[in-house]
Design a protein around this nucleic acid. Structure first.
Lengths: 212, 212, 212, 212
DNA sequence: CTTTAAACGAGACGGTACGTCGTGTCTTGCC
DNA sequence: GGCAAGACACGACGTACCGTCTCGTTTAAAG
């Protein structure tokens, strides 16, 4: 997750020399989110972040290779706050996760950063991998969890074919995340209760029809 | 679409002085797409575009306010090439438009630019409107057209409630465009025949279920 | 004397584009001398000079390759103010030029800059040439002038051997300039009336003895 | 000569704790001269010196306050190698010392460092004193020695006025050192046999004339 | 022997300046 | 007036050193 000499991190990272400040890491990521809110992606500068964090620019570059990597880590922490409590039915679970995701996308730091790093990742394989591991794959867990619950409830059948199940999970993830992002950022229309209900209904019918 | 004195453009726009070169406009937009391919959004510069187009920087700024506006116009031309020939059934039409859109998103100039301008638009209302009018609303016609054909074929019922119809169109547009973009750029997985078929099936069931 | 496209300077320098600001040149050189006085050579920065001159850093670098070249030009203007009015005798002329040179070396901008650029020039041939042409060779004129006057007065014989005359001129120049600089900057002792008289006496005896 | 806790230096300086490494001192000064040769004054860095000496930066700063002080000590060791064997006459002694000094100034570490520290000393009184005690005053001994020998030989009269003798010594020192430095570094001309002979002749006539 | 305290290597740290690049504006002179 | 050329003020870039600090380790003399 960090630049150079990370990997093992912590205990045995390097035996000699002054150890890296853990406070600095936290301060930098928080400062990055602050700056994203105030300035947006394109006007965020490394110098500004370092100043907000009360840290030297070199300290920043020692840990992250650039703005892209820094922002991915900063917003990944936001995405990790998403949860999926059991709402009693698949439909309710879907509605809940859609609303929660939409709420996250109302936060200015998430709005401005998410599309920007994805845009950069189209020309930077390392960045794409970082986004995938730090954000995408971690959130897929919500879909997996919802599916398992629905299967336990008998709302969805168990899928014997492992690979098919995986493809379905990916598809559902892309449909939910993609549609919400498009609605919120591209169409720039509100993700309100009515829209969520309509979208969830469409998705439920789709799921049940496909599963049949 | 242009900066200052645009609208009518061309012949009678301003009475005195040398008229603006129409060749320059085309050259600039083409050069912008070239530069997007080679350099990507973040490394594309106004100076580089002007040099590629064989045009002075002032000429560029006389027409567009900045990089954002220029790139929106440049990629909008790409999106206008999308078409929807009648494939005989709603399902076939959907598959076709999904494939065509995915193909567009394989072009490097579209990949890198689309997400980037959307990211910028989260903090720039004028830019959001420009994107909406130059790209989003123009492509919504494909959904409307598909719907009308399906209704003519009897695959979908006519919707009396105008506003409901509009909301449904928007939803379908967000689902298709959002899902494909997410698959292609965020998940970074291929949009192949198998995936398209699965996605279309899900969508068809969703539509039929909701419409019932 | 300048960076790039100088040479012919002025009229036909470059036909097209905005011409370089002559005011900027003067402001930069003045700002450089100011900064040398206040900060000294080692704490003078290009950024500070550009700020004092009310000019962008790029404007500075467009004209000079670096601090060394800039400072040479800035102090060269100081050296050009040296004059040698006819004081009636060779001895008086020598005393006058020594005093005037010592006075120049009391100016903080000259003290700090002169030795520094010479130090740099030991590893930079281009800089050495620049110092030679902008400062050293221009001041040698004072020695030549003093010699001619002394010959006209009959204080010194005319030298038939051109090359010998040249070597003598160089030697006298090194003796006067070197000794005064060493006294003022290395020994850091005052160049007062008494010292000048003693030094001049030594020099006059040396000249007459050698010439005999 | 050193930073902190020097003065008394050596054995009883501080009673307890690990004593400073004498090897480190020598390695650092040697590394400094090496670096001066390779990089010159302005590109010499404390970090580089410490690396060459196989020593931590802290070890370096524990002994010297900065680059200036370090370099003064490093070149002072060079100057201490100058000697003045009895060549039989004042003239021969002068020629010898001039040649030896010129030879020292051909060494790149001396060329680049000498002028640089003098330049710095114009704004740093402590540095000027250090240069004076470590270099200037120590070399003045050569002039004093030459004078005493000449007096013993009867080439120069004994000077009763102590203060006048001292002023004369200083003047001769400034003339010799200043002229040679100016010839070698500012005029950047070779100090060859012919030039030395001419300069020495001038000086001898000057001395004899003044002494009369 | 231990203790004790400074020296030592390594390297992270907050700063400052570097020299370059991109932006958007301006000033020329030619069309 | 459009336009190419290019200078300009501004501000961010990523790097290099500065001199200080914080670690863990080593080393000699005092107890």
């Amino acid at each position: 997750m960090r630049h150079a000499r990370s990997g093992t991190s912590g205990s045995a990272s390097g035996r000699t020399g002054r150890p890296r400040s853990a406070e600095a890491d936290a301060a930098i990521l928080a400062a990055t989110r602050d700056a994203l809110c105030e300035l947006g992606w394109s006007k965020l500068t490394m110098g500004d972040v370092s100043a907000r964090a009360g840290v030297a620019k070199t300290t920043l570059y020692r840990r992250w290779a650039g703005k892209n990597e820094l922002v991915v880590d900063a917003v990944a922490e936001l995405f990790d706050t998403l949860e999926l409590p059991d709402r009693g039915s698949l439909e309710a679970d879907v509605e809940y996760v859609v609303l929660q995701f939409a709420e996250l996308l109302r936060r200015p730091e998430a709005r401005t950063a998410l599309m920007a790093v994805v845009a950069e990742s189209t020309r930077d394989d390392a960045l794409r991998d970082r986004i995938r591991s730090a954000i995408v794959d971690r959130q897929k867990r919500l879909v997996v969890l919802g599916r398992e619950r629905a299967q336990a409830r008998g709302e969805l059948p168990y899928e014997a074919d492992e690979e098919l199940a995986c493809r379905t999970t990916d598809l559902i993830f892309d449909v939910i995340a993609g549609t919400v992002v498009h609605r919120a950022l591209v169409s720039a229309e509100p993700v309100d209760q009515l829209w969520v209900a309509t979208f969830t209904a469409l998705l439920m019918h789709g799921l049940q029809g496909s599963a049949a």
